[in-house]
Design a protein around this nucleic acid. Structure first.
Length: 869
RNA sequence: GCCUCGAUGGCGGAAUUGGUAGACGCGGCGGAUUCAAAAUCCGUUUCUGGUGACAGAGUGGGAGUUCGAUUCUCCCUCGAGGCACCA
């Protein structure tokens, strides 16, 4: 064994050993318990960042731990390779997105390999390759025929200068990011997945996921947003509207129907269009509403504006005339694009009615009384007994719901209905670098799905987009085709799919990545699915995870797989953050400096006083701790870290610095600390090797008290690390437990054979407990400790409960809940004896002097609290 | 605006079911070793008062439940993630 810990040597050696043995390649073995461990695959943006390192280290620790439990562990890797950044890079560098993507993948693969991940690389999947996306196209055609995918109009951000559709991210303060032009909403035809058909199941089966964080399930429940309510029809006032018809609205508060004083429709609503024909001002307002992007966050924060129309509808119960307003807060995408307004009992309606002087009619007795004077109080929104509602007076919410629902149904003016907030998933993108939508438009036959024998529709790879319009729409070679049904000249669809489609089923493809007879090989897929542990960023809590759940159900219903849910257990990891430093430039902009180039001055307590740039010695502003990003220049390059300290140090630091679901603050000195710890582990092993090397098992019947304490420390560490890694995924405290054990082992004597046997047990424990986290060094240590098998195939250490028992316990003594002392008692001391000993305690006597003892609380094994006053 | 989560020493964090607040590490300070440095080792380190023993305060702020609250309830402040075309 080398004296010095040399990470570069031992990491290369370990990785070579694993590669030579094909150590992480797995096949379906029916008799062995499987464990499918999956981290969200990366977008090949160019270089690995620390967020990736954290994500894949967490996954690797879990995978290696499960392997040590004797399971057949599948841990694959792939590339979420379609996406916008490739098109942006193409425009900037005049390189085709395909070429850029493939070279990024090659570079990032070598980076991932240097981390020493226990990945089965033979299963690598790349979503931009035809052998992957052809099956996506195949499923699309099946679902289109089934009606699960359909075509309708949707609203997009339109850049009138670049003549192109923009992503929400590309709209900044209502303007196009490249052109600076004011963005408009535009309606275009798109393909939709009918995810709302599955809304009920997506909601209810969240209850079948005990291994998901409650937080994520709550977010998904709220996103799906099931509302039980009433569809209410307001008949047109034909005098004003000029035609018969009904305005449909959805409400969760039909009990307040008698308090409805007007209705409001979205700017895109047919009634708004009708009214605008004869009203220029209204048309101007509607045009104004169509300005700006489509992002909900922008729409929801804008000022609430509205305009009256000359139109009226009739109240379904009283027949009273109610004015129709157009309001920018009514969303065309939710419900019917129209709402009935009850200003007395809805905050938004109250605000709107107050602003425009519309009538406010209270119809519910709330805890604030029978009237609703301004300003708005939350109590006005309460449910309660009906008032001012004629025959419905006195009813409570539930009976009013039923009674009003009955009347509406009898008159064919409404009925109870369930409404979801969830909308159907529009997947058409007017972009080049994505999976082509397999549809052919024929004048005679309409939208015809591409037949299976003509799949895949291959995306040409040698295209450099220029930022205007969709490149495929300019390529006749691509879109000219003949109709598969009638053979007439036809036009191929030039939109591509949302990249979320690829990431919605990749986990299933890993089971049989090269299967060419179908989307998945059912035998393999059912062997591995569902994923036992999925790991990824919390930013995916809703969209990606919901779409993946949806796809699993679609694939189940196509008979492709058996699973109904893709991910049994979910771990959402926090961000990697770091200090930022900047200087204010003359023009008011900030230029950001990388932490590696900055020297920080601290006061005597270590608090940051000032910072200066290493190169010129002039001060920089300490900008606060933020997510590592290119824009703030506070990223730390993982490659540099690995080269300087080795992958094990990098992995150990990341796992130690904070629990996986919290944000992780980068700290150079923390990395140093991790490196120092591994060096200590190495040194103690080296000393042990020099002191006779591997020793036998200790004689448990002949341990001194000091030796018992050493052995107790070993098994405390086993207990702690087993719980922390196996159950709670708290790697930081597992590592702390191993550090505590090392502190004991370093001080333990090494003279006798018994001492050395104990140290052997301790060092083996350290190697095994650290093996998932720092696999390379443990690979070496395990050999040095005299083992012929590799540590990756060793079993996780077993806890010996006997090693933990103690003869005496220390109890805490409190007076009125305050710590006043400790007593040592034999483990089997009776409750009465403990109480007596506590009362005898000198401090207890001092602090209860002159007081009467009212109560004594004894918590066995923990504390005694004496209550006195 | 809406949904979700978070806030503990100088710093990252720990406290498993309501039971010793600050494990473990970083940083700081003091010392040992060294010609010197690096590396390593030892001690110390929540704050305030006190030479000291010790006392008091303390988990973002305010209230509440309890013998006892970082932990449970309510209100507030600040920060983060998401909001359907970033992935």
């Amino acid at each position: 064994m080398q004296e010095q810990y040399s990470p570069s040597d031992i990491e290369a050696a370990a990785q070579t050993d694993w590669e030579n043995a094909d150590a992480f390649k797995v096949t379906e073995t029916p008799d062995q318990e499987t464990f499918y461990c999956l981290s969200m695959f990366p977008y090949p943006s160019g270089k690995l960042h620390m967020g990736h390192v954290r994500n894949y280290t967490i996954g690797d620790v879990i995978a290696r731990y499960q392997r040590m439990q004797g399971k057949n562990v599948l841990q694959p890797m792939g590339w979420d390779a379609f996406g916008m950044p490739a098109e942006n890079a193409a425009m900037n560098n005049k390189v085709a997105p395909a070429e850029w993507t493939y070279s990024n993948i090659d570079y990032m693969r070598t980076q991932l390999k240097s981390l020493g991940l226990a990945i089965d690389w033979s299963r690598e999947v790349t979503t931009c390759k035809p052998d992957y996306y052809r099956w996506e196209q195949w499923l699309f055609t099946k679902l289109f025929e089934k009606g699960v995918i359909y075509r309708k109009n949707g609203t997009v951000n339109w850049d009138p200068v670049d003549q192109t559709v923009l992503a929400n991210e590309q709209v900044i303060d209502g303007k196009g990011w490249r052109s600076g032009a004011l963005i408009e909403k535009r309606e275009i035809p798109m393909y939709y997945f009918a995810i709302t058909d599955y809304a009920e199941e997506l909601l209810s089966s969240l209850d079948d996921l005990p291994g998901w964080p409650e937080q994520v399930k709550t977010m998904q429940r709220n996103w799906i947003g099931k509302s039980v309510g009433m569809e209410v029809h307001f008949p047109y006032d034909t005098d004003s509207i000029g035609q018969d018809g009904k305005l449909k609205v959805f409400t969760t508060r039909p009990d307040t129907l008698m308090g409805a004083t007007y209705v409001a429709v979205a700017a895109e609503h047919p009634l708004a269009t009708l009214a605008a024909k004869s009203d220029k001002r209204l048309q101007t307002f509607i045009d104004e509403c169509k300005r700006g992007g489509v992002a909900e966050a922008d729409i929801a924060t804008q000022e609430k504006k509205g305009l009256p129309t000359p139109l009226f509808v009739k109240h379904p119960l009283t027949g009273a005339k109610m004015p129709v307003w157009v309001a920018n807060y009514v969303l065309m995408t939710y419900g019917e694009g129209a709402v009935m307004a009850v200003p007395a009992h809805d905050e938004r309606d109250f605000e709107f009615a107050t602003k425009f002087d519309l009538p406010i009619k209270p119809v519910v007795r709330t805890s604030a009384g029978d009237s609703t004077p301004a300003p708005w109080q939350d109590a006005y929104g309460e449910k309660g007994e009906l008032i001012n509602s004629e025959e419905f007076d006195g009813l409570d919410f539930a009976s009013a719901f039923t009674a009003i629902g009955d009347v509406l149904e009898q008159n064919d003016l409404g009925a109870p209905r369930t409404q979801f907030r969830l909308r159907d998933w529009g997947i058409s993108r007017q972009r080049y670098w994505g999976c082509p939508i397999p549809i052919i438009h024929c004048d005679a036959c309409g939208d015809v799905p591409v037949p299976e024998d003509q799949l895949p529709v291959v995306l040409p790879e040698n295209v450099v987009p220029d930022g205007s319009g969709s490149p495929l729409a300019k390529m006749a070679d691509f879109y000219d085709c003949s109709c598969p049904k009638c053979g007439a000249a036809a036009k191929r669809e030039t939109d591509t799919m949302d990249t979320f489609v690829e990431s919605s089923w990749y986990f299933a493809r890993y089971a049989s990545p090269n299967y060419d007879q179908g989307m998945v090989d059912p035998k393999a897929a059912n062997h591995w699915l569902p994923v036992d542990q999925y790991i990824g960023g919390i930013e995916h809590a809703i969209l990606h995870l919901l779409y993946a759940r949806f796809f699993t159900k679609l694939m189940r219903d196509e008979g492709l797989i058996e699973a109904s849910e893709p991910f049994k257990n979910l771990l959402t990891q926090g961000m990697v953050i770091a200090e930022t430093y900047y200087r204010l430039e003359a023009n008011g902009s900030k230029s950001w400096f990388n932490p590696a180039d900055v020297i920080v001055e601290r006061d005597a307590k270590g608090k940051i006083l000032a910072a200066k740039l290493e190169s010129d010695g002039l001060p920089v502003v300490v900008g606060g701790i933020e997510k590592m990003s290119k824009s703030k220049n506070n990223g730390v390059d993982p490659q540099a870290m690995i080269e300087q300290y080795g992958a094990d140090t990098c992995r150990l630091f990341m796992m130690f610095a904070s629990p996986p679901d919290m944000s992780l603050e980068w700290s150079d000195s923390g990395v140093e600390g991790a490196f120092r710890f591994l060096r200590r582990v190495w040194r103690l092993n080296h000393a042990h090797a020099n002191n006779g090397g591997p020793a036998g098992k200790p004689d448990l019947n002949a341990l001194s008290d000091a030796q018992k304490n050493v052995r107790r420390a070993i098994h405390l560490a086993i207990r702690q690390a087993s719980q922390d890694i196996g159950q709670h995924h708290k790697f930081n405290t597992a590592i702390a437990a191993v550090m505590t054990l090392m502190n004991v082992l370093e001080k333990a004597p090494q003279e006798t054979a018994q001492d050395r046997a104990l140290l052997q047990e301790g060092l083996e424990t350290v190697a095994l407990l650290l093996a998932p986290i720092a696999p390379h060094i443990c690979h070496s240590l395990w050999q040095a400790l005299g083992h012929n098998d590799a540590v990756i195939d060793a079993r996780w250490p077993q806890l010996d409960e006997n090693a933990l028992t103690q003869d005496t316990l220390q109890l805490v003594i409190q007076v009125n809940g305050k710590l006043r002392g400790h007593i040592d008692v034999a483990a089997d001391t009776s409750r009465d004896a403990i109480e007596a000993a506590a009362r005898d305690n000198e401090n207890v006597q001092r602090f209860t002097e002159g007081l009467t003892i009212r109560k004594v609380i004894v918590v066995p094994g923990k504390l005694v609290n004496i209550v006195a006053n």
